[in-house]
Nucleic acid binder design. Structure first.
Lengths: 195, 195
DNA sequence: CCTACCGATCGGTAGG
DNA sequence: CCTACCGATCGGTAGG
C-alpha cells in the first residue's frame, strides 16, 4: 500500500502502476495488484483509465516526450559548437531523463512491446526518429573530421543501448550524479578505452 | 504451426517456446499458445516439462553456459597477448553466442526476471561473475597502461549493455557477419569515436 | 500423448 | 468510487 496525498488520484495510480509494471512486467502485473497497492477496488480503476493498456500508453508516451524535449534543448544549446561537445550534451540530457524517473524509464525500455498495433507503430516511429537525429550528429562529426570514419548506424545503437541500460544499475542515493555518469560514459564512448 | 522433424520432441517444443517467449514475453505467452504452435495438446506439454517455468529455465541456463564457455576460450587463447587484443576476442566471442541464436538471446536478456527466487538468485550470481571477469580484464588494461584510468565498473556495464542489445537489430541474412560487427563495435568501444 | 477437468485469476462492464 | 458479476483464459492434474 502506497500513500501519496499531494498528487491527484489519477497520477497516484499511474505512479504505483509504473512501479508495478517495472517489478513484475506489464503482463504479469494485474489490475487487482494495482487495486491492492492503491487501496481502491479493481473496478474503480476504470473510472480513471479506460483500460490497462491506457496506463501503459500514458507512461510510455510521456517518457518519449521527455526524451524528445531533452534532445531538442541539447541540440539548440550547442548549435555552433564542435560535434564532440554537442554529443556530450546529448548524452547528459538523455541520462538526466532516465535518472529522474527510473521506474518510468524501466517501463519505457522494457514494456513497449505490449503496446497494441497502432500505438506500437507510433512508438517505433518515434524511436526511429530519435535514433536518426543522433545518427545525424555522428555523421556530422565524421564529415567535419572530428570522428573516425565508421558505421554510424551501429555507433548510434551502441551509444543508445549503453545509455538505456543505466536505469538498471543507477542508484539515486549513490554518490554519483547523472553528470558524473554522463562524463564517464561520454569519455568512454567518445575517447575510447585506450590512452 | 512449426514443423521440425530432425530434432527430438522436447527440443522442438523448447525451440518453439523460445520463439513464443521472445515474441509475446514469458508471461503473455501461454501453454495453450505453445500447444497450438507445436500441434499437441496443452496438457501433453507436461509430459516433457514439469512446468512452464522449467522451459524458461532450460533456455536461460543453456545460454548462460554458452556465454561462459565462449568467455573462457576467449580468455585462454589470448593469455599472453596485450589486453586490447584480449578484449577484442572477448567481444567477438560474446557476439558469436548472441548471433548464433537470436531468439534464445532475446529470452535470456529480457525474460530472466520471471525466474522464481532460487533460480533468479543463481542467474544473478552468474551475471555478476561474468561482469566481474570482464571487469578484471579492463583493470588489467588500466594497470598495464594500455587503457586510460577510468571507472571500470561503469565501463563493463557500458560495453556489455551495448553488446547485449545487438540481438534486437542483427539480421542473420544481412550482409554483415558477427566478425564485422565485433570489429566495428570493438573499434568504437576501444578506440572511441574521435580520430 | 490424449480427454476431461479444476480452482484461480484475468480484464472489464452494469448500475448505482 | 463501490458491489456484484461476466465470459475467457490461465497453469496444471488425474487417469489413462
Amino acid at each position: 500500500m502506497v500513500n501519496l496525498t499531494t498528487f491527484p488520484r489519477k497520477q497516484q495510480i499511474e505512479q504505483v502502476a509504473t512501479k508495478l509494471f517495472r517489478e513484475k512486467g506489464y503482463s504479469a502485473a494485474s489490475m487487482r495488484d494495482l487495486a491492492a497497492e492503491t487501496g481502491i477496488e479493481a473496478a474503480s480503476l476504470y473510472a480513471h483509465f479506460k483500460s490497462k493498456e491506457a496506463i501503459l500508453q500514458n507512461i510510455i508516451f510521456r517518457m518519449a516526450d521527455e526524451f524528445f524535449k531533452a534532445l531538442e534543448s541539447a541540440e539548440k544549446s550547442n548549435e555552433r559548437k564542435d560535434v564532440v561537445s554537442k554529443l556530450y550534451k546529448i548524452i547528459l540530457a538523455h541520462l538526466q531523463v532516465i535518472t529522474e524517473d527510473l521506474d518510468a524509464s524501466a517501463v519505457f525500455f522494457n514494456e513497449w512491446r505490449h503496446l497494441s498495433d497502432l500505438k506500437l507503430q507510433e512508438f517505433l516511429k518515434l524511436r526511429d526518429n530519435y535514433e536518426n537525429r543522433i545518427k545525424a550528429v555522428l555523421e556530422e562529426g565524421v564529415q567535419k573530421g572530428e570522428f573516425r570514419k565508421m558505421d554510424c548506424k551501429i555507433a548510434v545503437l551502441t551509444i543508445l543501448s549503453s545509455l538505456n541500460w543505466v536505469h538498471t544499475w543507477y542508484k539515486p542515493q549513490g554518490e554519483r550524479s547523472a553528470e558524473d555518469i554522463a562524463k564517464e560514459m561520454g569519455d568512454l564512448l567518445i575517447l575510447g578505452l585506450v590512452k
